[in-house]
Amino acid sequence: MKIGYARVSTTGQTLDAQIAALTAAGCERIFKEQRSGKSSAERIELQAALAYVRDGDALLVTRLDRLARSVLDLHQIVQQLNRKSVDLVVLLQAIDTTTPAGRLTFSLLGAIAEFERELICERAAEGRARAKQKGVKFGRKPMEVDWASIQSDILAGTQSKAAVAQQHGISRATLYRLLDC
């Protein structure tokens, strides 16, 4: 049985092209998700696909980087597939791990995918550092809360705490957190 796995990293991307390719390759079931490829342990659908495949099945992906971004992660997945006697087929890169040439290609492309991921992380870190040097602030903006007004509204007792929170543009949880301080 051919089992497909399709993944995109962000919600702005679409799975359509991968699903079409996996369907054309004869996949009877396709697992899909929109998550980062950094760690396979965090990808629920990948774990479901790995649990679903059985002896003699083939797990198909369109490209190797859809499966994982590190060589270690890729090898762990392939070892798991090997223990279950499941083949890995990467459609667009013509990789089939049942052959020595396929295993070599798999290892080389996995190393390249990991290198690419590290370059992306380095560039992102450099961009954040440059932005910080220019004075860009990261994270949530601090809340400006009129604490005296909130206290007087609470002490007046004319409105519920939920209504006071809504009136001041804060959540009930934030109101309760402020009251506990």
Rank of each mutant, 00 (worst) to 15 (best):
M1F: 12
I3T: 03
G4I: 01
V8L: 02
G12L: 09
L15Q: 04
A21C: 08
A25F: 02
I30G: 01
K32G: 05
E33D: 05
K38C: 00
A41R: 11
A41I: 12
E42T: 09
E45D: 09
A48D: 04
A49Y: 05
A51R: 08
D57C: 05
A58P: 10
D65C: 04
H75R: 15
I77R: 02
N82D: 14
R83V: 15
S85I: 12
V86I: 09
V89H: 12
V90D: 06
L92E: 15
T99E: 08
P100W: 06
A101H: 12
R103T: 13
L104Y: 14
E116C: 02
E118Y: 13
L119E: 12
L119S: 12
L119Q: 13
I120W: 06
G127L: 07
G127E: 02
A129C: 12
R130Q: 14
K134R: 13
G135K: 01
V136M: 08
F138N: 05
M143C: 12
V145S: 02
D146C: 04
G157K: 00
Q159I: 08
K161Y: 09
K161Q: 10
A162V: 14
Q167H: 08
S171N: 06
T174G: 07
T174C: 10
Y176R: 03
D180A: 15
